[in-house]
Design a protein around this nucleic acid. Structure first.
Lengths: 344, 344
DNA sequence: CTGAAAGCGCTAACAA
DNA sequence: TTGTTAGCGCTTTCAG
């Protein structure tokens, strides 16, 4: 069960290791006859390249690293799936890391990926400011693209969605359903997703003259539990809003659950919206109206940007201006809101 | 931004590369004074080991590979999280692969991991028979432990739960709630989870004299969609069962949803149970009664077995008998069943 | 078109 | 205790 090396193939084929290398990596001119002999020898011995040796020599690993805030958030796993798929088409592997929503762990993960010589990194930074240093330091050494979230003080490629435009759709839809006041439940404003979504929410509610009480903006984290807590606070408070806008579906799931627990009718008494369109949004009671991000396109674009950056000659140093690509997501209307709801 | 090598550290510290290596990897005797000098030099230059070079030299990568059937199944992501955590404590990294429930992709992933010289592999085989060859071939070359699922015709370590015992608890509970007939919704019997769970279901329903109609065993895949389809079939059929036992929570989520859509009361008319206790089980309407697997212990045990196998001297070849470790999972009673349900 | 040889960065004998 | 040296398996000049 010893590992087959290029030397053994060379011996069997009666050529030098250089020739074997040339045949197997498809570089350099080799006569057809020799090619056949080498291939046959490799086949017979069950030769497989040693990616480690190749990486040491080439300082390329055909591996891309990806760092997400939390692998247990279905939105991110879905993104990961799409990225992996897109990379597969280019014959690259994905090295996945979970930052556990902790900038320190995230920084360590990024350093590890650099040390491991990945060819590029896709990261969805977990913190809007604290992630900055590590992300920028990494981007100075390798092609890097930020996905979905964006961290301030960095200049790297980014691909995601136009959160402000999405929120405009959400607010218009709620208004159409009769909302006159609204609450926002998000995570602490330490990542761009929440920031942008909140900005969009705030902006459009002003324009539509939808009231937002000062204590109707609740910030915690992206979790079901936080959604439940926040909703309880809103409902127990003096004057519950007509609508609760959530920064992601996990929160919204918690919110609708809490509403049920409090005997508050959704969407009759209060409308609820989510963001991301994870699979479970559809399964909630009532099913969640939410914002669908074009994950596949986002992933494809990220991989494309990475490939482009890698192809770039000059290496790091003076780089071309970075690209910011935002898709406009679409509203998915379901039972947790009133306007245009499908007939029951 | 060039990479700092051991040679540069050596030069700066005025010692040989061997000494630097000894200091940094903590092997071999070095005088305290030299140690300090080397460490300072390394620090100042911002030295980081090159894991690739180290791996080539040592044929150890401090990386463990993990292959799961589907990264979008919350149960597996949770398992992954726990494994990663356990590995972190040993200073190892995790290389995660998604087999997309396809034995062929799975085989390729396993081969890739072997080629990449991971130190060991944790795999939850996606198919009960077709995964066999690749898993065994891999296990012949590296420490390997199967997690949760087990594939026939292999002899490797395994850690998971006692599905039969779990199903006994489930059936007893349903009986207590008054069930006289039951249906089983699972995936095609091509993986051990379903097989064992079905066996346990069948066995205990006989003992309890719970009727199982021939056409009340529905096999598809582990997905919400299949749960919905299967439930529709059961409810539209002539004589719906008192209870629907599902092989995992995703299926159960689909089943309860379909029941609601059909206006069938859960648990009043039909009781429903899941398996895995994913986070969303709690959020369903009604919340799912399900089986909780001790994921953290499973993960810890798998990592321990791997470490033990790696420590094994003789290398592969004549191996000690493999270990099969099964935990007895616990029933989590919620609103989708009748007996012992918490007061509303 | 092919082979010889150098070397990617690191570690483990073996010497001193 | 420290240095010298020989590779791990592969690719790539540079000669031939």
């Amino acid at each position: 069960m010893q590992r087959v090396t290029i030397a053994q193939v060379a011996e069997r084929a009666g050529v030098s290791t250089a020739t074997v290398s040339r045949v197997l990596s498809g570089r350099g001119p080799v006569s057809a006859a020799v090619q056949r002999r080498v291939r046959r020898a490799a086949e017979e011995l069950g030769y497989q390249v040693n990616p480690i040796a190749r990486a040491l020599r080439n300082s390329r690993t055909d591996t891309v690293g990806m760092v997400v805030p939390s692998i247990s958030n279905p939105f991110f796993t879905s993104l990961v799936e799409n990225v992996e798929h897109a990379l597969g088409r280019e014959g690259k592997e994905l090295f996945l890391c979970d930052a556990r929503s902790d900038p320190e762990i995230e920084a360590r993960r990024l350093a590890t990926l650099v040390a491991r010589n990945v060819d590029g990194i896709i990261v969805s930074p977990c913190h809007g400011t604290e992630s900055g240093a590590a992300v920028q330091a990494t981007a100075d050494r390798l092609p890097l693209v930020q996905l979905d979230r964006f961290v301030g003080g960095t200049s790297t490629d980014w691909v995601g969605v136009d959160d402000v435009a999405a929120m405009r759709q959400v607010m218009d839809h709620l208004r159409e359903g009769g909302a006159r006041s609204a609450a926002f439940v998000g995570s602490l404003l330490t990542n761009s997703s929440t920031e942008q979504r909140f900005a969009g929410f705030r902006h459009r509610s002003r324009e539509l003259q939808i009231t937002v009480d000062a204590d109707h903006v609740l910030l915690g984290d992206y979790s079901v539990a936080w959604g439940e807590t926040a909703a309880a606070r809103l409902l127990d408070g003096g004057d519950p809003p007509d609508a609760i806008v959530c920064a992601d579906d996990l929160i919204a799931l918690g919110v609708t659950r809490a509403c049920r627990a409090h005997g508050v009718d959704v969407p009759g008494t209060v409308q609820v919206t989510g963001y991301d369109n994870i699979e479970f949004a559809r399964l909630a009671e009532p099913p969640l109206t939410t914002v669908d991000q074009p994950r596949e396109r986002i992933a494809a674009e990220a991989v494309r940007l990475l490939a482009a950056a890698a192809a770039e000659p000059g290496g790091r140093g003076e780089r071309p201006p970075s690209a910011h690509i935002a898709f406009v997501p679409s509203l998915v209307v379901r039972g947790s809101t009133r306007a245009g709801a499908p007939a029951p």
